[in-house]
Structures are given as structure tokens and as C-alpha cells.
Amino acid sequence: MEKAKKTTKKYSKSQWALLFMAGLGVVFLLVFNYAPMFGISLAFQSGDYVIDVRDAILNSEFVGFDNFKKFLTDPEFIDVVVNTLGLNVLSLVLTFPAPIIFALCINEVKNKRFKKVVQTVSYFPYFLSWIVFGGIVLSMLDSQTGIVNEIIVKLKLAAGPVNFGLSEYFWGLIIVTGLIKGVGWNSVIYLAAIAGIDASMYEAAEIDGANRWNKMWFITLPSILPTITVYLILAISGLLNSGFDQIWVFRNQMNLDRSEVIDTYVYKHGILKNQYSYTTAIGLLKSVIALILLTVSNAVSKKIAGRGIY
């Protein structure tokens, strides 16, 4: 018995390698996630317009919750929060199921060559940066020279060219372009989950007379539900995180009332205007809300589906 205990304590070479690799992950976390937490103190200090962040942390006055109050009373606060939540909730509702449906559909395609072509075509936009992809989209949508407007005008779908840069189109533009760029790539994880389903379950279902729809509904979907749950919880916790690059590419002065979100607001005030304390406070507020969302969604998931991420 004692001998067996000793054996479990000894690590093999490969286990040491794994431990070493895990250790690197821990170091990464410590250096890039824990160490910067030191800067959180800036949220409670008057470090705006101080050039060196370290100087701001060490030498600025303590101002309590002043920076938080400033954000909450900012005339743009309502717009920024409404846009952030509105855009992300809408995005979650419309774009979260899309890769799942896409993965289910791809899984049903029997022609391997066609399947590969569809997958490659759908993955490709993901590998373009938002600057490039957004630039292409903006050129296509240009109301003077864009091909989309030429089609709209020729098919008489509208009275004249449509200016997609206006605020009424902004959320739609973000969701549609997000779908085009991400649906293929985001489906990979679900395809991997589907690939891991035991084939004998499908065989048994076939013997029981199940058709393709039944197999998908009663075997595939329930089997990938844990994966869906994890991603849904993570997506909910990230409700205040907007795709900065994407929004920055499509925003202009005419759609600011729909395009100004927390991330762009922080970038403008923090990076471009040196207001480190103010934007740290906003970042901290955002993180606290994200933590609450994560905790609540995880608890709800555990209660309803019996599983969560921790």
C-alpha cells in the first residue's frame, strides 16, 4: 500500500513536461493578468493627464469614487451603455446560434468535396483583419461607387442609393458583417464536438427508425449541449465587450449615436486623451459587471441544465 502511494507521487518525464507547460500558463496568468491588477488603484486616483502611468499610480491623489461618478453623470453615459448592451444582446441572440446551426447543417452534408469547399469559403473571412474586411465591405456599400447600391438602384429596391453609413443601419451592419466573418470559424468548435459523438448512437437510432432530423434533434444537439452551455455562459459574461476593431472601422460622425460603445469610449478617452484614471474606473466597472453576469449565468445554467463552467 505504502509502495503504491510512493509511486503516485513520482512523476514520469512526460508528466514533468506537462507540469512545466502548465507552469508557463500560470506564469503567463501571473504576469499578464494578476500583475496589471496593481493598476486598478488608478481608478480611485486623480491620475488623468499624467504622462507616465507608473507616475500616475504612485504619485496621484486618492479621490475615492470620483472617477466612477464622473462616468455615471457623463452626458454620453446613457448612449454608451444602451449601445453596448443593445448591440451585444442583439448580437448574442442572432449570432450565437448561427455557428451551431451552420455546424449542424455542415454535418449533414454527405458530399465531402462540397463540404470542404463550403467550410473553406466560410472560414476565409475570419483570417482577414477588420481593417481589410471592413474596407472591402465599405467599398461595396459606398452609396456613390459601391456595387451593392448599383444593384439596389438597378433592381429598384429603393428610391435611390442607400447610405449604409447612417446610424439606422449601424447595428445591422455590425451583426451581418460579424456573421459573415465569424460564422464559419466559430462553427469549428461545434463540429469538433459533433465529431466526438459515439457513432453507435446514430446506428442504434437508425435501427429504431430515426430519420436525419430525429438524429440531429435527439442525438447531435443534446450531445453538444455542454459545449453550447459553456460558450453561452462565456458569451453572456462578455456582454459588455464589443468587437472594438469592427466598430472602429464602421463608425463615423453620422452613426455615433449608435456606434459609441464602452470600448470605443475608453479608447478615445484613455489611450488618445491620457485620462488613465477615468478610463481605468470605467474598465473596472465593466469587469465587475462582467463578473456578476458570469456568476449569475453560471448559477442559472447549473440550476436549469445541471452544468456550468465551474
Binding site: T145, P161, N163, G165, N252, Q253, M254
Partner: peptide, 19 residues
């Protein structure tokens, strides 16, 4: 003044002038 001018970026203005 085109509607597009209100939302145009520098590249779009450049394109218009170039043409």
C-alpha cells in the same frame, strides 16, 4: 453635397477626387 459625404472617410474623398 452627397449623402455619402456625411459618412465618408479620407479614402472615399480621395477616390472621388481621383476619379
Amino acid at each position: 453635397i452627397a449623402d455619402a459625404n456625411l459618412t465618408a472617410n479620407t479614402a472615399a474623398v480621395k477616390r472621388n477626387i481621383s476619379l
